[in-house]
């Protein structure tokens, strides 16, 4: 099986950066934002618990509070965030993409 490339480990930045349109991003104080264009990964080595989004993809309500459910799973090279939104009932997986991969080699195949 070919070696998988190493993931870049991107550190969190301490201060929220402005959105392109000048408005400041809405984020909870305990989760600092990455600069625009940077990934916000929680990686095996960063030791960070980070969810790279704040709002429900279904309705736009905040999913940062403890009543919403966001569970991170690591699947191969990706972080998958299993989400349930208490505002609209959305259930789904949010997968940030840092590299588009056409298909994954079948193990042993």
């Amino acid at each position: 099986m070919p070696e998988r490339p190493e993931l870049p480990v991107v550190e969190y930045r301490g201060t929220p950066s402005p959105e392109p349109n000048g408005r400041s991003r809405r984020r909870s104080a305990d989760r600092p934002a990455a600069a625009p264009g940077e990934y916000v990964w929680a990686t095996p080595t960063s030791g960070q618990l980070g969810v790279p989004f704040s709002f429900c993809p279904g309705c736009g309500a905040s999913v940062e509070g403890p009543t919403a459910f966001v569970q991170e799973l690591w699947v191969s090279q990706e972080s998958v965030f299993h989400v349930w939104c208490p505002a609209c009932g959305f259930v789904g997986n949010v997968v940030p993409v840092h590299r588009m991969i056409g298909h994954e080699a079948v193990e042993g195949g």
Binding site: T67, A68, F69, Q71, H82, W84, P86
Partner: peptide
């Protein structure tokens, strides 16, 4: 876990 949250 999600089911627990939904039912809470």
């Amino acid at each position: 876990r999600r089911l627990v949250f939904e039912n809470i």
